[in-house]
Design a protein around this nucleic acid. Structure first.
Lengths: 235, 235
DNA sequence: GGCGCGCAGTGCGCCAACGTACAGATCAGC
DNA sequence: GCTGATCTGTACGTTGGCGCACTGCGCGCC
């Protein structure tokens, strides 16, 4: 159904100059992620850095006396462990596997020496950090301004961008958790999207029927975030 | 009334090794900011980098079909122009002078060569970027979860931290603009704070009467943001 | 083939914040 | 001292989302 490109590699790694890329790949191992794995906890040391390939993770922010709230999604377009690029060896947020799949992994100390050896690596990743900052900021504004329905649409689009196929395996309860809202609010929003024939779902499976329509139903933030990435990361 | 330290310098610059600090200061000029000055527009090139001293600025995010929304406040604890540290010569957000005062300014190209010459500078500023990211993220969650009253309290505290004295010169309308809410919502929230004898105000002047009380009335985010900074930036 | 559980639909009262609007208060300038 | 502009108080109906709770469907399992 969808005409999205589904690269089976990591875009950051792809963007590296071939020499650097190969040297980095030599130090990488391919790991498998299972849904729900906690890759790192907030304020804990990074043992590894990850470049997702087919798997992807949610960044969760825990604010006292509220459920954790998703503030970002990282898949094959990004990486986990940007703190190390900034010289801080502690993760700012909890990261949880949201889509099972693979990722390239490299031990933190080896990554750090690679940063020192290849300035091109660090240049690229710093630009990625810039994009990430813009996205985190926009996500905040989005949370404030937009309805659950358009945020849900955005979330579905962003997730599909990081996954193979049109069907996502998630329940309303899970979505509610990610969006920081009630389960029944998600049910209402999802039903609205279904009535418009943009998605269809039942019992933990959501199928995206009409991406274009979903983009129209979602807030502008979806496009904007994509533009942020494209503008800064295109070679 | 308040026992806050009010350094008349910039903390980032203070934290530099003396050698680097002096060399950087040689290239800096002290500029005066007036309230309302637009220091940079989103997506425009940075001509200068600024280290606020007694002035401070708001970072504003413009989301299509909404008023701009304040997502950050930068005073003598920070800097404006972090993008350059990441190798991107374009500002992510609009920056507006929120408190008149002084700032150290350095032309963008000179700043960039300083970054290359003094790795210590770049190390420090990257850690600051890490803190900024955490703060931006938390600000998003705060916007989502907390009432106007506690966000107002937080905003007043954060502003007072960047200013000399206990009186802030701002109207309800201005606060509404910053917080992304109606003017009359601010009036209600402000009145509630006044009833608790935490602040008093009239016609564009707000005086903070009880910082401790205001901290209790504000959301946890105030403390948390301060901790983020302290944990990473303490030498 | 029936049972149980997990998932989704729905209803209720409640509340924070919204948009809009207008009235009263206070200050600056003439 | 009056006038106009600015700032603040207050009101009205509306809306999006909340917390909670209960129902009903359908799949998987024994």
């Amino acid at each position: 159904m969808s005409a999205r490109p589904t690269p089976v590699t990591n875009q950051l790694i792809e963007s590296l100059p071939p020499g650097v890329r190969n040297k980095l790949l030599k130090r990488c191992a391919l790991v498998d992620w299972t849904f729900g794995d906690i890759i790192c906890e907030a304020d804990q040391k990074h043992e590894h850095v990850y470049f997702p390939v087919t798997g992807f993770i949610s960044l969760l922010m825990k604010e006292s006396d509220h459920h954790p709230l998703e503030v970002g999604l990282i898949g094959h377009e990004g990486m986990l462990g940007t703190s190390l690029v900034l010289g801080v060896n502690s993760a700012p947020l909890r990261s949880v596997v949201q889509g099972a799949g693979t990722a390239l992994s490299i031990p933190a100390d080896q990554f750090q020496s690679a940063l020192r050896e290849y300035p091109g690596l660090s240049n690229l990743l710093m630009r990625y950090i810039y994009v990430l900052m813009q996205q985190l900021t926009l996500a905040g504004a989005c949370l404030h301004f937009h309805t659950i329905e358009s945020r849900l649409a955005r979330w579905l689009l962003m997730t599909q961008d990081r996954v193979q196929g049109d069907t996502l395996h998630l329940t309303h309860a899970f979505l509610a958790y990610m969006l920081g809202v009630r389960r029944s609010s998600v049910s209402l929003a999802a039903e609205a999207l279904q009535r418009q024939h943009l998605v269809s779902y039942s019992r933990g499976n959501i199928t995206i029927l009409d991406r274009k329509g979903l983009e129209a139903a979602s807030c502008q933030c979806y496009q904007t975030m994509a533009e942020y990435y494209a503008r800064i990361m295109r070679r």
